[in-house]
C-alpha cells in the first residue's frame, strides 16, 4: 500500500511540475533560440535547436522597454514604501484597539478591497488628470489601494503577537511612542513587515488595470509590454518578459515559506 501511494504521488507530482514549468521553458526558448527555429516555423520544434543572445541584445538596445522597467521599479518601491508608512501605524493602532473594534475596521477594509479595479480606475483617472497625477505617481497611489488592507492585516498579526511588557518597559524607561516604535516594535516585528513590503512590491509589479487606465503613455512595463505584443514584436518582447520575471520568481520562491494562509486569504481565517 505505501509504495503504491508513493508511485501515484510521484507521477502526479512530475506531471504537474511539467505543466507548471512548460510555459517558462517556452519563454526561455523563444528568448535564447534563434528566431528561425521559433517564430520562423509553422510548427516550431519543442527542443532548443540553437543558442543566441541577439534577441536579448535587440530588445535592450532597440525597444524602449528599459525605461518602463525602471518606472515599474520606482512605482513598486513607492507602493511598498507607502504600505509601510501608512500600514505600520495603522496596524499598531489596530493592535491596541481591541479585537471588537479592530476586526470591524479590517472587515471594512477588505470588503472595500473587493471593488473591481476598473470601477475605481475610470473615474479617478479623470480626477487624476486634473490633479496632474495621470502618470506613474498616480498609478502608485491607486495601486496602494489594492495592497494596503492586506499589508495592514499581515502586520497587525505581528503586533498582536508581541508581548505587551516589552513595550511597557520601553515606555517606563522614558522612551516616547515614536522611539518605542523605531527601536523596539518595528525591529521585533520585522518578518511580517518584510512580507507586507514584498507582497506589495510584487502586486505592484504585476498590476495592469490601474496602470493602463491612469497612465496609458509612459507607463509601467506591463502596459508597455502589452503595447509591444499587440503591435507584433514578440521575440524582442520575450527577452524583456524574461528579464522582469526572474527577480519576481526568486522573491516568490523565497516568500513561499512565509506565504501562510491568512496572508493569502486576505485575513479571513477559519
Amino acid at each position: 500500500m505505501p509504495s503504491k501511494v508513493n508511485y501515484a504521488t510521484y507521477i502526479g507530482a512530475v506531471l504537474l511540475a511539467i505543466i507548471f514549468l512548460y510555459p517558462l521553458y517556452i519563454l526561455f526558448m523563444i528568448t535564447f533560440v534563434p528566431t528561425f527555429y521559433t517564430f520562423g516555423q509553422l510548427y516550431p520544434p519543442q527542443l532548443p535547436m540553437g543558442f543566441t543572445l541577439s534577441n536579448v541584445y535587440q530588445s535592450i538596445t532597440q525597444l524602449n522597454l528599459i525605461k518602463p522597467v525602471f518606472r515599474s521599479t520606482i512605482v513598486a518601491f513607492i507602493v511598498g514604501g507607502l504600505s509601510l508608512v501608512l500600514g505600520i501605524p495603522a496596524a499598531y493602532g489596530l493592535s491596541k484597539l481591541g479585537a471588537r473594534v479592530s476586526n470591524k475596521i479590517i472587515v471594512l477594509l477588505f470588503l472595500i478591497n473587493m471593488m473591481p479595479g476598473i470601477v475605481v480606475a475610470i473615474p479617478i483617472s479623470v480626477d487624476f488628470l486634473s490633479l496632474g497625477l495621470a502618470n506613474i505617481y498616480g498609478v502608485a497611489l491607486a495601486q496602494e489601494l489594492v495592497v494596503l488592507p492586506l499589508s495592514v492585516f499581515i502586520m497587525l498579526g505581528g503586533f498582536r503577537a508581541l508581548p505587551r511588557d516589552l513595550e511597557n518597559q520601553a515606555r517606563v524607561d522614558g522612551a516616547s511612542l515614536g522611539t518605542t516604535m523605531l527601536r523596539v516594535l518595528i525591529p521585533l516585528n520585522r518578518a511580517p513587515i518584510i512580507v507586507a513590503f514584498l507582497l506589495s512590491w510584487m502586486t505592484s509589479w504585476d498590476e495592469f488595470t490601474y496602470a493602463v487606465i491612469i497612465s496609458p503613455t509612459s507607463s509601467t512595463f506591463p502596459v508597455q509590454l502589452y503595447n509591444y505584443v499587440t503591435r507584433g514584436v514578440p521575440y524582442e518582447a520575450s527577452a524583456i518578459s524574461l528579464i522582469v520575471t526572474i527577480p519576481v520568481i526568486i522573491i516568490a520562491a523565497v516568500l513561499q515559506k512565509y506565504l501562510k494562509s491568512q496572508y493569502l486569504t486576505g485575513g479571513m481565517t477559519i
Binding site: 510555459p23 517556452i26 523563444i30 495592469f208 518578459s241 520562491a253
Partner: peptide
C-alpha cells in the same frame, strides 16, 4: 516549482500563452 507561476506577471504569462496557442507557429 508549483509556486513559481504566482510570481510571473499576468501580462508576461498572457504573452507566453499567446505564443503557445498562436494558430500560426504555436507550440
Amino acid at each position: 516549482i508549483v509556486v513559481v507561476p504566482f510570481g510571473v506577471a499576468t501580462v508576461v504569462s498572457a504573452f507566453v500563452f499567446s505564443q503557445i496557442f498562436s494558430p500560426v507557429g504555436g507550440y
